[in-house]
C-alpha cells in the first residue's frame, strides 16, 4: 500500500493520538518544570474606630493577572523533582545522617509521601502479580477437570471481579469488611476479637488491598490459562503417558511448558496493571495507610481551586520513568525480535 493511501486511512487516528497523547506528554514535561506563583502580598490599611492597622493580604487582582499571563506558574527547573514531596534528596540525606539504625531510617523514609507511594506501588506489583498467576493457574487446572456442564457458569461468575471496575469492586468489598459488614463481623467472631478492624492498622490495610488485587485479577490469568489448556498438544500428552509420566509429571513437563508463553503474557499485563494501582485506595478509603504513585497525582490534582499542577506533573514524569524501567526488558526483547525478523 503506498504511503499516501496508508495515510489517508490512518490520519484520523494519528491526529487524535498526537493531540491527546503526544501533546499532553509535552505538557506534562513543561508543567513539571514549573511551580505555582508565589503569593503577591499587598499591604493595605484597615481603618476602624480604634485607628488604622496595617494588614498584609493576598492581592487577588494581581494574582489573577499573573495567572492569566503565565498559567503554568513560574519556572522552577528540576526543583519540584527534588523537593520534599517528591525525591526529597535533602531529607533523605538528613535522615541517613541522623538515623540510628535501619529501622528508624526505614520508618522515616516511609513518612515521605513519594517514597511511601513508591514502596506501596512496588510491593503491590511484586506481591500481587505472582499470586494472581498462581491462583489463576490453579483455578484453570481445576475448572478444566470438572464436567463440561459447569464451565460456562464458572467462567461467567469468574469474569465479574475483573470486569467490574476496581473502584466499584473495592467498594463492594469495603462494605463487606466493615466491622458491621458480613466479612468484618465474621472475622471478629473467628479471631474472637470484637475490636478487630481491617481498616484500623496499616498492615491489615495493605493485606486487604493485596487480597483485593488478587481477587480482581485472578480471573484474567484464569481465562488466559484456561484457553491455553484447551490447546495442550494431545500428541505430546499421550506420548508422555506412554512414556510413563504420572499426573503431576504430565503437568510439570507438558502442560506448564505449553503455558509458558501465556504465563509471560499474563505476567507482563499484570505488572503493567498493578503498577498503576489507584482506584482500590479510594474504594477502600485507605489513603491514610497506603498510597500509590497514581494516587499521589490524583490527590495533587483534586485540590479544589489550586490544583498542584507542577507537583502532579513531576510525579507523573517519575511514574513514567518507573514504567520505562519496568518495561525495558520487554521492549528490548521485542526490539531484538523485530530486528531479527526484518
Amino acid at each position: 500500500m503506498p504511503h499516501k493511501v496508508f495515510l489517508s486511512f490512518l490520519w484520523p487516528s494519528l491526529i487524535v493520538m498526537i493531540l491527546f497523547i503526544a501533546l499532553p506528554i509535552v505538557s506534562v514535561v513543561y508543567q513539571s518544570l514549573h511551580v505555582e506563583h508565589e503569593q503577591i502580598m499587598i499591604v493595605g490599611e484597615t481603618c476602624g474606630p480604634f485607628g488604622c492597622t496595617e494588614e498584609v493580604s493576598v492581592d487577588a487582582e494581581a494574582m489573577g493577572k499573573l495567572r492569566e499571563e503565565k498559567p503554568a506558574g513560574r519556572f522552577n527547573g528540576l526543583g519540584t523533582y527534588f523537593n520534599e514531596s517528591h525525591l526529597a534528596t535533602d531529607e533523605i540525606a538528613e535522615i541517613f545522617a541522623t538515623s540510628a539504625d535501619f529501622r528508624e531510617f526505614r520508618n522515616r523514609v516511609m513518612n515521605l509521601p513519594f517514597y511511601n507511594a513508591l514502596i506501596f506501588t512496588v510491593s503491590y506489583t511484586l506481591i500481587v502479580t505472582p499470586l494472581v498467576m498462581l491462583v489463576g493457574f490453579i483455578i484453570a487446572i481445576v475448572v478444566n477437570m470438572v464436567p463440561r456442564l459447569f464451565k460456562g457458569p464458572v467462567i461467567f461468575f469468574s469474569l465479574l471481579p475483573m470486569i467490574v471496575t476496581p473502584l466499584i469492586g473495592s467498594l463492594v468489598l469495603f462494605w463487606m469488611i466493615d466491622s458491621r459488614g458480613v466479612i468484618g463481623a465474621s472475622l471478629q467472631v473467628l479471631f474472637a476479637d470484637p475490636t478487630l478492624s481491617l481498616k484500623a492498622s496499616p498492615t491489615l490495610t495493605w493485606v486487604t488491598l493485596f487480597t483485593y488485587g488478587v481477587w480482581h485479577s485472578a480471573p484474567f490469568a484464569f481465562v488466559v490459562f484456561y484457553a491455553g489448556l484447551q490447546t495442550v498438544p494431545q500428541d505430546t500428552m499421550e506420548s508422555a503417558m506412554v512414556d510413563g509420566a504420572n499426573r503431576w509429571e504430565r503437568i510439570r513437563f507438558v502442560t506448564i511448558p505449553h503455558l509458558m508463553p501465556l504465563a509471560i503474557f499474563v505476567a507482563l499485563m499484570q505488572l503493567m496493571d498493578n503498577f498503576r494501582v489507584f482506584e482500590p485506595i479510594i474504594g477502600f478509603a485507605a489513603s491514610a495507610s497506603a498510597s500509590s504513585l497514581s494516587y499521589l497525582i490524583f490527590n495533587d490534582l483534586r485540590i479544589s481551586n489550586t490544583p498542584l499542577f507542577g507537583s502532579a506533573a513531576a510525579t507523573s514524569m517519575l511514574t513514567i520513568f518507573g514504567i520505562i524501567i519496568l518495561l525495558l526488558p520487554v521492549l528490548r526483547q521485542n526490539w531484538r525480535e523485530f530486528n531479527r525478523k526484518s
Binding site: V28, R276, F309, A312, I320
Partner: peptide, 9 residues
C-alpha cells in the same frame, strides 16, 4: 502500562 492519571495532569 501508563497510568491514565499521568496523562491527565
Amino acid at each position: 502500562a501508563m497510568p491514565g492519571v499521568t496523562l491527565i495532569s
